[in-house]
Design a protein around this nucleic acid. Structure first.
Length: 569
RNA sequence: CGGGACGUGGCGCAGCCAGGUAGCGCACCUGCUUUGGGAGCAGGGGGUCGCCGGUUCAAAUCCGGCCGUCCCGACCA
């Protein structure tokens, strides 16, 4: 393709509201443009990259014998009502009416539709199956952000496995885990497979594929020694034992004027160090006030609270609500003597004695609290978020906490959807059995943005050859240099003959502009036809290293084709 | 949804406080010069100042309402 004919609107300045590197560079490089919040147009360059990512994912699926479908993006309400999610998913689903006033939804995922089709699997002999599609998903995200990283409509590869029994599901899940590992390698993404919470999908297990990046929105805990890795929504760690002193002590109520924080309670007379305090978080779980207790120096993880209690809607109570239900403002709250509200507590508080906590009267606290004696804990749960440096549960080495982009997520769904849709088969004994399912997603645009996030420098993008919009660009330093133009045209023709995707920068612009643009759009190899042409040579520059070597005009096309081939295998 | 910021040619911004009929850089068009790291000179085109209403002789500017976008928190590929 000739650059002079292509629509590549590069920008010297990034839009003021772009924050993430991928966002800035994809806009500056002329890959994407925003239509409105969370909705982006893919320009010709952007679509080329998107297509390449898509095809890498597609090949990964074909490798495990998955069959490609294409399902409707718009669904009747009825299938979502059947699975119960019409009610349970809430405002994240785009809903609309047709002219007959029938309820419709834009698909945010396709468990319902696929399991509906799966009702036509009638014999165990047809199992297992793996079905997939690459289809647009619509999600009314509360907060779209960071360019392609978090949007409201996006292409997702979603696959679904159908098996007779748990062993089959385990196998399909494992096969996907391996396929995902290969796909992300192919994309040059160092994705870490971590244990994850299953969230709204439900099911018995899930693994997320996380790419370390400051632009991400999730934290994972990982151990560099033994390989343990989990989303902080799931991660645990070993804790050093705490010495609560000898014997039991008396519950004592004492005045603490102005003390509102854990830190303040550490230093007052009668107080205690943070790890010997109880932090009382007053939460509203599906509308019901609940006390969630963690150690004073620990952080409550909301997803763990949701997973542990089964609550769908969680928020912190307003100060007015804490006054109404407990009689005090945040800063003086506690669970001692509370019997009319549910209380859940983190394992780290089990059996603990001699603790300090709020007394449910402003400016008063308790000391000498014995959890078992003084607090009516209804349920012990894992509620605390791990912190960097805490010992790994497996090997004891310190954990690190890393910010990541979630590029893939695989779930063991079990029989929930198949049961709702009535997807059963007859087994060898002629008994009807409900199919068990897994579901497996990769966000195409998000993966593309993640690659951009990881592979760039201060000059622009550095696409890995596997996803680059073009493998090479031939830069003609000056269009008035007839010899250079001739050499460039010749190499251009040869490369196209060799099947290499190549751009010919034939714009009547200054060399500096062309160099800068080629680096901004991140094409892996550049051939410069300029002053070296007088010696029968051109320059070959590798984008990732900046290294330049001279190559004979005669050999240039073959040299680039060899590099592109090497990168392909 | 809670908190914060912003909305002025395609992009980046000034003008607003102290109302007087819109400006700068980049980009774009024409000409001349220049030609290996985002050229120079000269000329030129392009803006309902987010929208609606109000105050005023006069509103980008003051007041009210609405909409939109971005950032920080609760959700997901």
């Amino acid at each position: 393709m000739r650059w002079s004919k292509l629509f590549i609107p590069t920008l010297r300045d990034a839009p003021a509201d772009a924050e993430a590197a991928s966002h800035k560079l994809l806009v500056r490089g002329g890959f994407i443009r925003q239509l409105h919040a969370g909705h982006y147009s893919l320009l010709p360059l952007g679509l080329r990259v998107h297509d390449k990512v898509e095809n890498i994912v597609r090949r990964g699926m074909e490798q495990i014998g998955a069959q490609e479908f294409l399902l409707p993006a718009m669904h009747p309400a009825s299938i979502w009502q059947r699975s119960g999610r019409w009610e349970s998913v809430g405002p994240e689903m785009f809903r609309l009416h047709d002219r007959k006033e029938a309820d419709l939804a834009l698909g945010m995922t396709h468990e319902e539709v696929f399991s509906h089709i799966a009702t036509e699997i009638t014999s165990y002999r047809s199992l297992p199956q793996i079905w997939y599609q690459i289809q647009w998903k619509f999600r009314d995200e509360p907060r779209p952000k960071s360019g392609l990283l978090r949007v409201r409509e996006f292409a997702m590869k979603d696959s679904y496995s159908f098996d007779l029994d748990d062993a089959g599901l385990d196998h399909a899940f494992e096969v996907h885990r391996e396929a995902y590992t290969r796909i992300f390698e192919r994309l040059s993404l160092d994705a870490i497979a971590v244990q994850a919470s299953s969230g709204m999908m439900g099911g018995t297990g899930s693994v997320e594929f996380m790419v370390p990046s400051p632009a991400g929105e999730d934290d994972i805990a990982r151990c560099n020694n033994c390989g343990y890795a989990a989303n902080v929504e799931r991660a645990t760690s070993t804790l050093a034992p705490v010495d609560d002193g000898d014997g039991s002590s008396e519950l004592t109520r004492f005045p603490t004027p102005g003390v509102r924080t854990i830190a303040a309670l550490e230093t007052v007379e009668g107080g205690a160090p943070a790890h010997r305090q109880i932090k009382t978080m007053v939460m509203v779980l599906d509308g019901a006030i609940t006390l969630a207790l963690v150690r004073g120096d620990h952080q409550l993880n909301l997803q763990k609270l949701a997973d542990g209690t089964g609550a769908a809607d969680i928020r912190a109570a307003e100060p007015s609500e804490t006054v109404e239900h407990l009689g005090a403002h945040p800063g003086s709250l506690g669970a001692v003597g509370v019997t009319d509200l549910p209380i859940v507590a983190d394992h780290a508080l089990r059996g603990r004695r001699n603790l300090a906590t709020g007394a449910n009267t402003d400016d008063w606290h308790y000391s000498g609290v014995d959890i078992d004696r003084d607090i009516a804990v209804g349920e012990w749960l894992d509620l605390r978020e791990v912190s960097a440096g805490e010992p790994c549960v497996n090997c004891g080495q310190p954990l690190e906490v890393v910010r990541c982009i979630e590029t893939g997520h695989i779930f063991k769904l079990g029989r929930r959807y198949a049961e709702a849709m009535g997807a059963t088969v007859l087994d060898a004994d002629g008994v009807a059995r409900t199919i068990t399912m897994g579901s497996y997603g990769i966000g195409i645009g998000r993966a593309m943005a993640a690659v951009a996030e990881v592979h760039h420098d201060d000059r622009g993008l550095i696409w890995p050859a596997a996803v680059a919009p073009y493998a090479a660009v031939i830069t003609v330093a000056s269009m008035r240099d007839d010899a250079a133009v001739t050499a460039a045209e010749r190499i251009y023709g040869e490369l196209r003959g060799l099947g290499v995707e190549v751009l010919l920068d034939d714009r009547d612009a200054r060399a500096g502009v062309k160099f800068a643009d080629s680096e901004l759009i991140g094409v892996p190899w550049r051939i410069t036809a300029g002053r070296a042409v007088a010696d029968g040579e051109v320059e070959l520059t590798t984008r990732s290293t900046g290294d330049t070597e001279r190559v004979a005009i005669d050999d240039a096309a073959a040299a680039v084709a060899a590099l592109a081939d090497a990168a392909r295998s």
